[in-house]
Amino acid sequence: NQASVVANTLIPINTALTLVMMRSEVVTPVGIPAEDIPRLVSMTVNRAVPLGTTLMPDMVKGYA
């Protein structure tokens, strides 16, 4: 099973992502692959992402 990116904290809308905000976890449904974490750093989220939420491609500006 592939690990996905999961919010390690509440990420407010329009926040630039940092490494400490994200962790990898095997979850269903599958979200952004964990190997993309380095690429996500400094990208911003377009909605509030609660703790434990899987990051989906449409949640990160410029990812999809």
Rank of each mutant, 00 (worst) to 15 (best):
V20H: 12
M56V: 14
S4G: 05
V5G: 01
N1K: 05
E25K: 06
V5W: 02
V30Y: 15
T44R: 10
V60K: 00
G52A: 09
M22R: 00
S4T: 04
N8P: 02
T9C: 05
P33N: 09
E35S: 10
V49Q: 02
S4Q: 02
T54A: 06
I13H: 11
V45T: 06
A3P: 09
V30K: 06
V5H: 01
Y63T: 03
E35D: 10
N1Y: 15
A34T: 07
N8L: 07
P57G: 08
N14K: 07
E25I: 05
A7R: 02
A16K: 08
T9F: 15
I13D: 13
S24R: 07
N14L: 06
T18E: 06
M59I: 05
V60M: 04
G31I: 01
A48T: 15
Q2Y: 11
N8F: 05
T28E: 15
L17C: 02
A16T: 15
T28A: 10
T18N: 05
P57F: 07
L19E: 04
N46Y: 11
A7Y: 02
I37E: 02
V6L: 13
L19Q: 08
L51W: 13
A3R: 05
Q2W: 11
L10P: 15
T44H: 12
T28D: 15
D58V: 08
L55V: 06
M56T: 15
M43N: 04
I37Q: 05
L19H: 10
S4N: 02
I32R: 00
E25D: 14
V49N: 01
V26N: 08
L17V: 04
L51K: 08
P12F: 06
T15Q: 10
I37L: 15
V5P: 01
V5E: 00
A16E: 08
V41Q: 07
R23V: 09
I13P: 10
P29M: 04
P38M: 09
T18L: 07
P50H: 15
V45S: 09
M43E: 04
V49T: 05
I32T: 01
A3K: 06
G52S: 11
R39S: 10
N8E: 07
L19M: 13
N8G: 08
I32Y: 01
